[in-house]
């Protein structure tokens, strides 16, 4: 486990690299606002832990593990900034800095999905690192995503032939507007369709694609 401070350093190294400069003791000390002595100490520590390498001529480069972690934290930081921005906050940087160490990967991914997988930060336009999974897959809205009480339009099903036929017959056809009535966590979803209510198991509901409608 890395401490928050260590994470901040990795993040700073990443940010310096992003602006096409060579991260070194001096630039780090400027960015972090601490003495070169304490920067050196931290760099040594991170070097020993195998996240970065401090080259002889002074440049700091990431090891693959270090780069992964730094990207991940930057991703969380910028997603949080975007999210706070979306919520109407103006000063988002400092708050994002604090939240980024506490948020889980899953929640960050959920925010990413919620925002429609944004590419860039809204405040400074910097790139938000991707998680590496297929965004298209991730952005698909399925029945399990719908908040109870909301209406959605069915756009298709990706389940097996039999199940999809059965759903068709019960009125779950592409283009149909259905209302989600309730849902059990990790359990079925109850929807209202064609004047009747049906329960659809979790596994199937995850394969029913929907889009929002007014």
């Amino acid at each position: 486990m890395l401490s928050e401070n260590e994470e901040e350093y990795l993040e700073a190294i990443y940010a310096i690299g992003e602006s096409y400069e060579k991260p070194g003791i001096r630039s780090l000390s400027e960015v972090m606002g601490v003495s070169k002595a304490s920067v050196s100490e931290m760099v040594k520590k991170l070097n020993e832990k195998g996240y970065i390498r401090h080259e002889r001529y002074g440049a700091i480069v990431f090891t693959p593990e270090g780069l992964d972690i730094a990207r991940g934290i930057k991703r969380k930081h910028r997603l949080l900034e975007s999210f706070l921005y979306f919520l109407g906050k103006k000063e988002v940087h400092d708050e994002a800095c604090r939240l980024e160490h506490g948020i889980s990967d899953e929640s960050a991914d959920a925010i990413c999905r919620f925002l429609g997988s944004p590419d860039r930060c809204p405040d400074d336009g910097r790139a938000i690192p991707k998680c590496g999974k297929d965004c298209h897959e991730c952005l698909k809205k399925t029945l399990t995503w719908v908040i109870p009480g909301k209406k959605v339009r069915i756009t298709g099903t990706e389940c097996g032939r039999k199940a999809s036929m059965r759903l068709n017959e019960m009125g779950v056809v592409a283009g149909e507007v259905v209302k989600v009535i309730s849902r059990v966590p990790h359990g079925p979803v109850e929807v209202e369709v064609k004047g009747t209510r049906i329960a659809i198991g979790d596994g199937l509901a995850k394969k029913i694609l929907v889009e929002e409608c007014e």
Binding site: C159, G160, K162, A163, R166, L167, M170, P188, E190, T196, R197, I198, A199, I200, G201, D202, G203, L204, A205
Partner: peptide, 10 residues
Amino acid sequence: GEPMGLIMEM
């Protein structure tokens, strides 16, 4: 037989 998820009228 093939397992199939729940589709049940309420």
